[in-house]
Amino acid sequence: MKNPCYNTPMKNERSSSNSDTKDQPSYRSALKKAAMGMLSLLPMLLAILGLVGLFQVFVTPQMLAKLFSGDALRDTIVGTLAGAVAVGQALISYILGGELLKEGISLYAVAAFILAWVSLGIVQLPAEAEVLGLRFTIWRNLLALIFTPLTAAATVWTLRTFA
């Protein structure tokens, strides 16, 4: 025979759990909704991908590398802006950054470049503004633009001071 003192809380727990999930959509309907959401963004994603292709051909890593002059402060700003314009996998930024270091470009600039490569993106700005709002996009990119050279500077300064 079941112990009523044991069964009561179990029953309560189950009913509480049911109330947590009863309003939830089935996984199938949630999947459909998510797929529809992605599908509605398809024109925008295709536009971004089209620009990515253009940038990869017309704005080559070699062209970006030529922008650096050797002056640490100027190159840090150039590195941030070049990283923001560049598109492609982060892996490419490491390889290119390594080559820039060999050519005598400051580590400050290289750090800013590889950080901006991932955190900033000119190509995706219209999509970001459409999806997340113009004001949010402006603030987010402005903050990233300010914090990227600062993060790069803090990294290299700490490395050189304590290493």
Binding site: G50, V52, L54, V57
Partner: peptide
């Protein structure tokens, strides 16, 4: 060449987009 690059990126990104769809659905579920 740019079109070819775009097609290549689409092929690379499609699995990630599918993961995002599944993940979004899972969170909502």
């Amino acid at each position: 060449a740019a079109l070819f690059k775009t097609a290549k990126v689409i092929a690379e990104i499609t699995p990630i987009l599918l993961i995002v769809i599944f993940f979004t659905a899972l969170i909502n579920r």
